[in-house]
Design a protein around this nucleic acid. Structure first.
Length: 331
DNA sequence: GGTAGACCTGGACGC
DNA sequence: GCGTCCAGGTCTACC
Protein backbone atom coordinates (compact mmCIF):
# COMPACT_ATOMS: atom_id res chain seq x y z
CA UNK A 1 0.00 0.00 0.00
CA UNK A 2 1.35 3.45 -0.88
CA UNK A 3 0.00 5.85 1.67
CA UNK A 4 0.34 6.95 5.25
CA UNK A 5 2.02 4.58 7.67
CA UNK A 6 1.52 4.88 11.41
CA UNK A 7 3.02 3.26 14.47
CA UNK A 8 0.78 2.91 17.50
CA UNK A 9 2.10 2.06 20.95
CA UNK A 10 0.08 -0.46 22.94
CA UNK A 11 -0.12 -1.61 26.57
CA UNK A 12 2.68 -4.02 27.55
CA UNK A 13 0.33 -7.02 27.68
CA UNK A 14 -1.47 -6.34 24.37
CA UNK A 15 -1.48 -9.06 21.70
CA UNK A 16 -3.26 -8.11 18.47
CA UNK A 17 -4.20 -11.65 17.45
CA UNK A 18 -5.61 -12.54 20.85
CA UNK A 19 -7.32 -9.23 21.58
CA UNK A 20 -8.79 -8.66 18.10
CA UNK A 21 -10.14 -12.21 17.88
CA UNK A 22 -11.95 -12.01 21.20
CA UNK A 23 -15.54 -11.16 20.29
CA UNK A 24 -17.71 -12.17 17.33
CA UNK A 25 -17.84 -8.70 15.84
CA UNK A 26 -14.29 -9.13 14.48
CA UNK A 27 -15.88 -11.50 11.94
CA UNK A 28 -18.49 -8.96 10.80
CA UNK A 29 -18.03 -6.70 7.76
CA UNK A 30 -16.23 -4.51 7.13
CA UNK A 31 -13.77 -6.14 9.56
CA UNK A 32 -11.41 -8.69 8.08
CA UNK A 33 -8.91 -10.87 9.93
CA UNK A 34 -6.28 -12.55 7.79
CA UNK A 35 -5.54 -15.75 9.69
CA UNK A 36 -2.33 -16.58 7.81
CA UNK A 37 -0.57 -13.26 8.29
CA UNK A 38 -2.27 -12.09 11.50
CA UNK A 39 -3.37 -8.89 9.81
CA UNK A 40 -6.53 -7.01 10.71
CA UNK A 41 -7.91 -4.77 7.99
CA UNK A 42 -11.03 -2.72 7.28
CA UNK A 43 -12.25 0.54 5.85
CA UNK A 44 -12.46 3.40 8.31
CA UNK A 45 -14.77 6.36 7.73
CA UNK A 46 -12.70 9.56 7.74
CA UNK A 47 -13.44 13.21 6.92
CA UNK A 48 -11.90 12.89 3.45
CA UNK A 49 -13.73 9.64 2.71
CA UNK A 50 -13.12 6.02 3.62
CA UNK A 51 -9.59 4.69 3.89
CA UNK A 52 -8.49 1.09 4.16
CA UNK A 53 -6.14 0.30 7.02
CA UNK A 54 -4.11 -2.88 7.44
CA UNK A 55 -2.91 -3.43 11.00
CA UNK A 56 -0.14 -5.78 12.04
CA UNK A 57 1.89 -6.36 15.18
CA UNK A 58 5.32 -7.44 13.95
CA UNK A 59 6.81 -10.04 16.23
CA UNK A 60 10.13 -9.75 17.97
CA UNK A 61 13.01 -10.26 15.47
CA UNK A 62 10.40 -10.67 12.72
CA UNK A 63 10.62 -14.42 13.08
CA UNK A 64 6.95 -15.43 12.85
CA UNK A 65 7.57 -18.16 10.28
CA UNK A 66 9.90 -19.99 12.64
CA UNK A 67 7.47 -19.89 15.56
CA UNK A 68 5.28 -22.90 15.40
CA UNK A 69 3.01 -22.64 18.41
CA UNK A 70 0.29 -20.13 19.01
CA UNK A 71 1.65 -19.39 22.47
CA UNK A 72 5.16 -18.64 21.19
CA UNK A 73 3.80 -16.33 18.48
CA UNK A 74 1.68 -14.52 21.03
CA UNK A 75 4.65 -14.12 23.38
CA UNK A 76 6.80 -12.73 20.56
CA UNK A 77 4.15 -10.14 19.64
CA UNK A 78 3.15 -9.15 23.18
CA UNK A 79 3.38 -5.41 23.83
CA UNK A 80 5.03 -4.63 20.50
CA UNK A 81 3.73 -1.57 18.64
CA UNK A 82 1.11 -1.82 15.90
CA UNK A 83 2.11 -0.98 12.36
CA UNK A 84 -0.74 0.58 10.40
CA UNK A 85 -0.64 0.90 6.61
CA UNK A 86 -3.29 3.15 5.01
CA UNK A 87 -4.16 2.98 1.32
CA UNK A 88 -3.99 6.74 0.87
CA UNK A 89 -2.24 9.73 2.37
CA UNK A 90 -4.00 11.09 5.45
CA UNK A 91 -3.92 14.60 6.84
CA UNK A 92 -3.18 15.27 10.52
CA UNK A 93 -6.82 15.23 11.53
CA UNK A 94 -7.44 11.94 9.72
CA UNK A 95 -4.34 10.39 11.30
CA UNK A 96 -5.68 11.33 14.73
CA UNK A 97 -9.05 9.83 13.84
CA UNK A 98 -7.43 6.56 12.73
CA UNK A 99 -5.50 6.37 15.99
CA UNK A 100 -8.66 6.99 17.99
CA UNK A 101 -10.75 4.44 16.10
CA UNK A 102 -8.06 1.77 16.40
CA UNK A 103 -7.70 2.48 20.12
CA UNK A 104 -11.46 2.02 20.53
CA UNK A 105 -11.60 -1.24 18.60
CA UNK A 106 -8.80 -2.89 20.54
CA UNK A 107 -9.51 -1.18 23.88
CA UNK A 108 -6.00 0.17 24.13
CA UNK A 109 -7.21 2.41 26.98
CA UNK A 110 -7.67 -0.61 29.24
CA UNK A 111 -4.48 -0.71 31.22
CA UNK A 112 -2.77 -3.68 32.77
CA UNK A 113 -4.10 -2.72 36.21
CA UNK A 114 -7.71 -3.26 35.17
CA UNK A 115 -6.93 -6.60 33.61
CA UNK A 116 -4.75 -7.63 36.56
CA UNK A 117 -7.77 -7.04 38.80
CA UNK A 118 -9.86 -9.23 36.51
CA UNK A 119 -7.27 -12.00 36.53
CA UNK A 120 -7.06 -11.82 40.31
CA UNK A 121 -10.83 -12.30 40.47
CA UNK A 122 -10.87 -15.03 37.83
CA UNK A 123 -7.40 -16.61 37.51
CA UNK A 124 -8.52 -18.97 34.74
CA UNK A 125 -7.59 -16.35 32.14
CA UNK A 126 -4.28 -15.18 33.65
CA UNK A 127 -2.16 -17.60 31.63
CA UNK A 128 -3.69 -16.72 28.24
CA UNK A 129 -3.94 -13.06 29.20
CA UNK A 130 -7.47 -12.79 27.89
CA UNK A 131 -9.34 -9.75 29.16
CA UNK A 132 -9.90 -7.27 26.35
CA UNK A 133 -12.96 -7.63 24.13
CA UNK A 134 -12.98 -6.44 20.55
CA UNK A 135 -15.51 -3.78 19.57
CA UNK A 136 -16.25 -1.43 16.66
CA UNK A 137 -14.45 1.85 15.96
CA UNK A 138 -17.63 3.77 16.83
CA UNK A 139 -20.51 3.36 19.28
CA UNK A 140 -22.95 3.76 16.39
CA UNK A 141 -21.53 0.72 14.58
CA UNK A 142 -21.64 -1.29 17.81
CA UNK A 143 -25.32 -0.41 18.32
CA UNK A 144 -26.34 -1.31 14.76
CA UNK A 145 -24.32 -4.53 14.85
CA UNK A 146 -26.11 -5.44 18.08
CA UNK A 147 -29.50 -4.89 16.41
CA UNK A 148 -28.45 -7.14 13.53
CA UNK A 149 -27.53 -9.86 16.03
CA UNK A 150 -30.97 -9.96 17.67
CA UNK A 151 -33.53 -12.65 16.87
CA UNK A 152 -31.39 -14.17 14.18
CA UNK A 153 -28.74 -16.81 13.79
CA UNK A 154 -25.09 -15.89 13.27
CA UNK A 155 -24.89 -16.44 9.48
CA UNK A 156 -27.73 -13.96 8.98
CA UNK A 157 -25.99 -11.39 11.17
CA UNK A 158 -22.89 -11.76 9.01
CA UNK A 159 -24.96 -11.41 5.84
CA UNK A 160 -26.78 -8.29 7.07
CA UNK A 161 -23.49 -6.54 7.87
CA UNK A 162 -21.98 -7.45 4.50
CA UNK A 163 -25.03 -6.05 2.73
CA UNK A 164 -25.17 -2.88 4.84
CA UNK A 165 -21.57 -2.13 3.85
CA UNK A 166 -22.04 -3.05 0.19
CA UNK A 167 -25.38 -1.34 -0.35
CA UNK A 168 -25.31 1.69 1.98
CA UNK A 169 -21.70 2.27 3.08
CA UNK A 170 -19.36 4.50 1.09
CA UNK A 171 -17.03 2.29 -0.95
CA UNK A 172 -17.76 -0.71 1.28
CA UNK A 173 -17.22 1.02 4.64
CA UNK A 174 -19.73 0.62 7.45
CA UNK A 175 -22.47 3.18 6.77
CA UNK A 176 -22.48 6.39 8.76
CA UNK A 177 -25.48 7.34 10.89
CA UNK A 178 -26.24 10.19 8.48
CA UNK A 179 -26.26 7.88 5.46
CA UNK A 180 -28.35 5.19 7.14
CA UNK A 181 -30.78 7.82 8.42
CA UNK A 182 -31.45 8.84 4.80
CA UNK A 183 -31.85 5.27 3.52
CA UNK A 184 -35.31 3.96 2.64
CA UNK A 185 -36.77 1.17 4.75
CA UNK A 186 -37.53 -0.76 1.56
CA UNK A 187 -33.81 -0.67 0.63
CA UNK A 188 -32.75 -2.00 4.00
CA UNK A 189 -35.36 -4.73 3.90
CA UNK A 190 -35.11 -5.69 0.22
CA UNK A 191 -31.39 -5.33 -0.44
CA UNK A 192 -29.77 -5.60 3.01
CA UNK A 193 -32.15 -8.34 4.19
CA UNK A 194 -32.58 -6.82 7.65
CA UNK A 195 -36.28 -7.72 7.74
CA UNK A 196 -38.47 -6.00 10.32
CA UNK A 197 -35.37 -4.27 11.76
CA UNK A 198 -35.51 -1.75 8.87
CA UNK A 199 -37.44 1.05 10.59
CA UNK A 200 -35.70 0.49 13.92
CA UNK A 201 -32.27 0.86 12.28
CA UNK A 202 -33.37 4.06 10.52
CA UNK A 203 -34.83 5.55 13.70
CA UNK A 204 -31.66 4.72 15.67
CA UNK A 205 -29.55 6.27 12.89
CA UNK A 206 -31.66 9.44 12.97
CA UNK A 207 -31.17 9.71 16.73
CA UNK A 208 -27.39 9.42 16.32
CA UNK A 209 -27.35 11.81 13.35
CA UNK A 210 -29.41 14.42 15.28
CA UNK A 211 -27.05 14.16 18.25
CA UNK A 212 -29.70 12.73 20.55
CA UNK A 213 -27.40 9.99 21.81
CA UNK A 214 -25.08 11.41 24.46
CA UNK A 215 -22.02 9.20 24.19
CA UNK A 216 -20.10 11.27 26.72
CA UNK A 217 -22.83 10.61 29.32
CA UNK A 218 -22.74 6.90 28.50
CA UNK A 219 -18.99 6.61 28.89
CA UNK A 220 -18.85 8.82 31.99
CA UNK A 221 -17.99 6.52 34.90
CA UNK A 222 -20.20 8.73 37.11
CA UNK A 223 -23.28 7.57 35.17
CA UNK A 224 -24.86 4.71 37.16
CA UNK A 225 -25.21 1.36 35.36
CA UNK A 226 -28.92 1.19 36.18
CA UNK A 227 -29.64 4.58 34.58
CA UNK A 228 -27.74 3.66 31.44
CA UNK A 229 -29.42 0.27 31.25
CA UNK A 230 -32.84 1.94 31.57
CA UNK A 231 -32.04 4.55 28.91
CA UNK A 232 -30.76 1.99 26.40
CA UNK A 233 -34.02 0.06 26.65
CA UNK A 234 -35.95 3.13 25.53
CA UNK A 235 -34.13 3.01 22.16
CA UNK A 236 -35.93 1.39 19.21
CA UNK A 237 -35.00 -2.26 18.73
CA UNK A 238 -33.04 -2.35 21.97
CA UNK A 239 -34.38 -4.66 24.68
CA UNK A 240 -32.76 -6.18 27.79
CA UNK A 241 -30.32 -8.38 25.86
CA UNK A 242 -29.19 -5.64 23.47
CA UNK A 243 -28.89 -3.11 26.34
CA UNK A 244 -26.62 -5.39 28.35
CA UNK A 245 -24.55 -6.09 25.25
CA UNK A 246 -24.14 -2.40 24.45
CA UNK A 247 -23.10 -1.85 28.05
CA UNK A 248 -20.25 -4.34 27.77
CA UNK A 249 -19.27 -2.71 24.49
CA UNK A 250 -19.13 0.57 26.42
CA UNK A 251 -16.78 -1.04 28.93
CA UNK A 252 -19.31 -1.88 31.65
CA UNK A 253 -19.04 -5.59 32.30
CA UNK A 254 -21.26 -6.17 35.34
CA UNK A 255 -24.39 -7.20 33.39
CA UNK A 256 -24.77 -10.30 31.26
CA UNK A 257 -26.51 -10.12 27.88
CA UNK A 258 -28.15 -13.51 28.19
CA UNK A 259 -29.83 -15.13 25.21
CA UNK A 260 -30.61 -18.64 24.03
CA UNK A 261 -26.89 -19.20 23.61
CA UNK A 262 -26.53 -18.60 27.36
CA UNK A 263 -29.11 -21.28 28.03
CA UNK A 264 -27.09 -23.64 25.84
CA UNK A 265 -23.98 -22.70 27.84
CA UNK A 266 -25.79 -23.17 31.14
CA UNK A 267 -26.91 -26.64 30.15
CA UNK A 268 -23.90 -28.04 28.33
CA UNK A 269 -20.98 -26.41 30.12
CA UNK A 270 -22.28 -25.54 33.58
CA UNK A 271 -24.56 -28.59 33.86
CA UNK A 272 -27.68 -26.66 34.87
CA UNK A 273 -31.12 -28.20 34.46
CA UNK A 274 -34.67 -26.83 34.48
CA UNK A 275 -36.69 -24.51 32.28
CA UNK A 276 -34.92 -21.94 30.11
CA UNK A 277 -35.99 -19.17 32.51
CA UNK A 278 -34.60 -21.09 35.49
CA UNK A 279 -31.32 -21.72 33.70
CA UNK A 280 -31.03 -18.01 32.79
CA UNK A 281 -31.44 -17.11 36.47
CA UNK A 282 -28.83 -19.66 37.50
CA UNK A 283 -26.36 -18.36 34.91
CA UNK A 284 -26.85 -14.82 36.27
CA UNK A 285 -26.32 -16.08 39.81
CA UNK A 286 -23.28 -18.13 38.79
CA UNK A 287 -21.40 -15.08 37.50
CA UNK A 288 -22.48 -12.63 40.21
CA UNK A 289 -19.31 -13.19 42.26
CA UNK A 290 -17.24 -11.77 39.40
CA UNK A 291 -18.88 -8.37 40.00
CA UNK A 292 -17.78 -5.67 37.60
CA UNK A 293 -15.95 -8.28 35.50
CA UNK A 294 -18.88 -10.73 35.28
CA UNK A 295 -19.26 -10.43 31.53
CA UNK A 296 -15.57 -11.11 30.89
CA UNK A 297 -15.74 -14.31 32.98
CA UNK A 298 -18.93 -15.40 31.24
CA UNK A 299 -17.77 -14.50 27.76
CA UNK A 300 -14.37 -16.16 27.87
CA UNK A 301 -16.06 -19.36 29.05
CA UNK A 302 -18.35 -19.20 26.02
CA UNK A 303 -15.41 -18.27 23.76
CA UNK A 304 -13.36 -21.20 25.05
CA UNK A 305 -16.28 -23.49 24.16
CA UNK A 306 -16.31 -22.10 20.61
CA UNK A 307 -12.56 -22.56 20.33
CA UNK A 308 -12.84 -26.19 21.40
CA UNK A 309 -15.30 -26.63 18.53
CA UNK A 310 -13.58 -24.55 15.84
CA UNK A 311 -9.93 -24.13 16.91
CA UNK A 312 -8.14 -21.01 18.15
CA UNK A 313 -10.03 -17.88 17.12
CA UNK A 314 -6.92 -16.46 15.41
CA UNK A 315 -7.30 -19.25 12.82
CA UNK A 316 -10.99 -18.71 12.07
CA UNK A 317 -12.13 -17.89 8.56
CA UNK A 318 -15.50 -16.13 8.32
CA UNK A 319 -17.14 -18.50 5.83
CA UNK A 320 -16.15 -21.60 7.76
CA UNK A 321 -17.21 -20.06 11.05
CA UNK A 322 -20.56 -19.00 9.59
CA UNK A 323 -21.49 -22.61 8.93
CA UNK A 324 -19.91 -23.92 12.12
CA UNK A 325 -21.69 -21.45 14.40
CA UNK A 326 -25.26 -22.50 13.80
CA UNK A 327 -27.39 -23.50 16.75
CA UNK A 328 -27.47 -27.15 15.70
CA UNK A 329 -23.67 -27.32 15.66
CA UNK A 330 -23.30 -25.65 19.02
CA UNK A 331 -25.57 -27.99 20.95
C1' DG B 1 -45.88 -7.61 36.19
C1' DG B 2 -46.43 -11.58 33.29
C1' DT B 3 -47.58 -13.79 28.86
C1' DA B 4 -48.89 -14.77 23.99
C1' DG B 5 -48.30 -13.83 19.39
C1' DA B 6 -46.42 -11.22 15.49
C1' DC B 7 -42.43 -9.61 13.30
C1' DC B 8 -38.67 -11.57 9.12
C1' DT B 9 -35.00 -14.34 7.26
C1' DG B 10 -32.41 -18.35 6.11
C1' DG B 11 -31.53 -23.04 6.88
C1' DA B 12 -33.16 -27.77 7.53
C1' DC B 13 -36.19 -31.10 6.24
C1' DG B 14 -39.69 -33.86 3.76
C1' DC B 15 -41.86 -34.76 -0.41
C1' DG C 1 -37.67 -27.40 -6.70
C1' DC C 2 -41.27 -26.41 -3.66
C1' DG C 3 -43.66 -26.00 0.74
C1' DT C 4 -43.40 -26.22 5.71
C1' DC C 5 -41.30 -25.70 10.05
C1' DC C 6 -38.15 -23.66 13.24
C1' DA C 7 -34.79 -20.46 15.76
C1' DG C 8 -33.87 -16.00 17.32
C1' DG C 9 -34.89 -10.93 20.71
C1' DT C 10 -38.13 -7.10 20.71
C1' DC C 11 -42.54 -5.05 20.70
C1' DT C 12 -47.43 -4.70 21.47
C1' DA C 13 -51.75 -6.03 23.22
C1' DC C 14 -53.98 -8.14 26.66
C1' DC C 15 -54.96 -10.08 31.26
Amino acid sequence: MAGTRLTIRVPADFVLARDACSYGYFLLAPNHWEADTWTFSRLLELEGGPARVAIRQPEENGASARRVTLASRRRAARGRPLRVACDRTLNASERASVRGQIARMFRLDEDEGTLRAFHKLDPRWRRSGRGRLFRSPTLFEDVIKTVTSCNVQWPSTMHMNIRLCEVVGRGGAFPSAEKLARTRASTLRGRCRVGYRDKRIIELSRMFARGEIDEAWMTDTATPDDELFGFLQTLPGIGPYASANIMQLLGRHSRLPLDTESVRHGKSVLGFTGTDAQIMKRVHKHFEPFGEHAFRSYWFEVWEFYERKAGASETWRPKEVASAFTASNLK
